Computed example of a mutant assay.
Amino acid sequence: MQRGLVHAIAWSLATGAAVTLSWWGVHTVMSGTAYDPPRAVPISVGAGGGQGTDAPVSSSTHRAPPSASPSATASRATPTPSPRPSRRPSSRPPATGPGPAKSSAPPAAAGEVKSYPTRGGRVVLELADDSAKLVAATPEPDWSMQVWTNPEWIRVDFSDGSGATMSVFCTWNGHPPTVEVVDQ
């Protein structure tokens, strides 16, 4: 009886040590990988473009009060893509099925801020007569995001990890900015 109890205690201690060591090893390897919680895309606010710094700025959680100037003075630092793909499908139904690309008309006024919602996330752009700036890009839950910027275009891709990709293209090379949303 006493011998069985000693074996049970020794087995429990060895199993506990093995589980602890395994957990610590996996935790060490997985920290800093694609399984970390998502981080917000940084947005810096400045006085660029000759606009005042006291203009209201909107976010997804706080709406700025209406003012005489509809343009925001938000500019964005170069983002790092959020590498958080997931194999779980989104709980939200898709807004539209795969189909032809949608294109918007050029903006009517300089510095107009427009939002482009997709089933993978939302892109907010500030569209001027001959240029555009990315104000914000926010992926939906279980979607990852990647951003490319160039002096003549901006591209934002949202991926869900199962092959579905939503892309928002904004181009203005020699013409007013046009925005195209593509469901791939």
Rank of each mutant, 00 (worst) to 15 (best):
R76K: 07
S115K: 08
G97K: 00
S71H: 03
R87T: 15
S71Y: 01
G52W: 11
R92K: 14
S58A: 13
A68T: 04
R92H: 14
S71N: 02
G121D: 10
E112F: 12
K102S: 05
Y116R: 05
A74Y: 08
T96V: 14
P107M: 12
S59V: 15
T80V: 12
R119T: 15
P98I: 02
S59I: 15
S69H: 02
S58C: 14
A74L: 14
P85V: 03
R88I: 07
G99N: 02
A110T: 04
S59R: 15
S67W: 02
E112M: 07
G52C: 10
S115D: 05
R122C: 05
S91W: 04
S115M: 02
P89H: 03
R119H: 12
P65F: 10
G120Q: 07
T61V: 13
S69A: 02
A72F: 12
K114W: 04
G120W: 09
P56V: 03
S71A: 04
D54G: 02
P106R: 12
P98W: 01
S91Q: 01
A74Q: 06
T73I: 11
K114P: 05
G111K: 05
G111N: 06
G99S: 00
G97V: 00
R88Y: 12
G97L: 02
T61A: 05
S58T: 13
D54F: 03
R63P: 10
S103N: 09
A108L: 04
Y116F: 05
Y116H: 11
P93V: 14
Q51H: 00
R92M: 13
S75P: 05
S69I: 01
A64I: 12
A74H: 05
S69D: 01
A105N: 11
T96H: 06
A108M: 11
A72G: 03
P94H: 14
T53W: 13
S60A: 12
S82R: 02
P117R: 03
S91M: 08
G50M: 09
S59T: 15
S58G: 11
S60Q: 11
A72I: 06
A72T: 05
S91D: 06
T61D: 06
A101K: 04
S82H: 01
P85I: 02
R119F: 14
P79H: 01
P89G: 03
S60N: 15
S86I: 11
S103I: 08
P94F: 14
S60M: 09
T78Q: 00
K114D: 09
S67D: 08
T78G: 02
A109S: 08
A74P: 08
A95N: 15
A108V: 02
P93E: 14
P94K: 15
G99D: 01
P106A: 13
P85N: 06
V57F: 09
A77P: 05
R92L: 09
P98Y: 06
P70D: 07
P56A: 02
P81Y: 03
H62E: 14
R87P: 11
V57K: 09
P107H: 09
G121Y: 00
E112V: 08
G120L: 10
G97N: 06
R87E: 08
S59C: 15
G111V: 01
R63F: 12
P89K: 00
P94D: 15
